[in-house]
Design a protein around this nucleic acid. Sequence first.
DNA 1: TTTGCTGCAAAGTGTTTGCACGGGA
DNA 2: TCCCGTGCAAACACTTTGCAGCAAA
Lengths: 168, 168
Amino acid sequence: MAEWKHEHGNLVEDASGKLKSHGGRMTDQRRFILEAFRSASEHPTAGEIFRIARRRDSDLNLATVYRTVRWLEREGLVQARVFEPGSRSERFDSARPAAHHHFVCSACQRIIEFDASGLAEVIRVLAKQYALQVDQSTLVLHGVCFDCRSAAKAHGRSAKRNRIARGL
Amino acid sequence: MAEWKHEHGNLVEDASGKLKSHGGRMTDQRRFILEAFRSASEHPTAGEIFRIARRRDSDLNLATVYRTVRWLEREGLVQARVFEPGSRSERFDSARPAAHHHFVCSACQRIIEFDASGLAEVIRVLAKQYALQVDQSTLVLHGVCFDCRSAAKAHGRSAKRNRIARGL
DNA sequence: TTTGCTGCAAAGTGTTTGCACGGGA
DNA sequence: TCCCGTGCAAACACTTTGCAGCAAA
């Protein structure tokens, strides 16, 4: 995975561009939200973005965060995802062109991204076999990440301590 | 896919078994819910199960449906899934031992199951590469199914008419 | 009689919407 | 001036929970 915390690239600039071409405005709130998105842990929820952005504008409202992420979604700059039923909140993911997939650690909740190049071939075969037109694929793996496995092996270093070590 | 509507097998019997071994009771409500599950379209929501089961017991309550499906989930007989963020409800899936994956048709909303045998190898490689312990994998494909593609090609047979033809 | 299951209503969570105000183009 | 974006509160959709009564063992 090289770096589990990947670059969100130029979300702010991309968004500014989209705004200009639609007669929209780059307000302080939007900038704070975009920056929060960028500094948040991977795949933040609306609430997580809100809590971070609010540090810069204590009057910021959750509704504004939702409006902004939904707008980013419409513009194709981010994607909403639900990684597990039961955790009822959507997580937002910078929608990069290359298909990227996710591993969710059931111990520390970390979400690791990866490219599954081999998957493309599997899907191609399936599409042919079942005569499907496949537009999008989502692979989510659940299990235990390397750190948590090492931790468990080492001895009592708990998933909780892993989370804390990562600042979550 | 052989048959898109697969056998839910003996959900009722399986459930009875689990009930007996835990001192539980097979009530009418539970039976109606289990049978509704079986006769429902693939991957029903709690609401869909409720609407069907209520035809047999007009006093049935949604809360009872939720309690029952959550219990089935705990017993490992069904699995909750969210196929698309934005459709806020969970869908329930008979949890068969073999990993099975899903294709969601964006035209007629049909959910098609398939076995992706090739996927296992892809995952094995990923697990090794990233040093992950993978316990569960979920592959969801979005696109257009064979029927809807044919329909579109044939001429105006709409996705809606497809749905109706399938009794949804 | 004990205990499990139910219906009901209320609460809870995450997300969306109507509205009036305020500020930028 | 126009109208976009905001905060606020209410509405929403889905799911869960507390409780009292009922029913099966």
